[in-house]
Amino acid sequence: MEIPYTATARPDTGLFNAKLGVWMFLASEVMLFGALFSTYVLLRVGAPSWPHGYEILNIPLATLNTVILISSSVTMVMSWASLMMKEFKKYKMYMGLTILLALGFLIVKGFEYGAKFSHGLYPSESTFLAIYFTLTGLHGLHVIGGIIVNTYFWGPGSKMWHTDPQRFTNRVEVAGLYWHFVDLVWIFLFPVMYLL
């Protein structure tokens, strides 16, 4: 059975199916992260004292990661724009950059986690560290998920460009929606965990 409306828009929604599907998925993701942010608020207002993130966490490394992730969002949208302009080589370059930046984010995060562990700072150490590792860990898993999908679209999945370019462009667009959402979550995580 052929999946309908992968390349053209469905007349009643005005959207190709994957786009609506990914937006529904992102709505559920808002609730997932929202529940954890809500938990953070409850834990914080209920705690007798709460440390400043900057006393425990590494702000320069987190700022670097913010720059990396925002840059990767730009390269991601540029990879889609390149396909729209029928420039496949540029697409490969921008998508490749997106993947490299995402890997860079994970490496920096790995250094951060490593430094915490080497000082005996585990999630069990305090409520602050527990919610820090939960939120950044879940976000990190999302980054890994994005790398897997984007690597597929950069490598074997990109063959579709030669057989069904519109469908492939749509696939990259919705992968981008997910990737920008991962960036969005970090935009809030960074000040909430590190700066307040």
Binding site: S73, F181, I187, F188, P191
Partner: peptide, 17 residues
């Protein structure tokens, strides 16, 4: 911090998404 983060999120959602 939340005011600035909301502006940033708005820019990402409006233009990139």
């Amino acid at each position: 911090a939340l005011f600035i983060a909301t502006i940033k999120a708005g820019l990402v959602a409006s233009y990139f998404m």
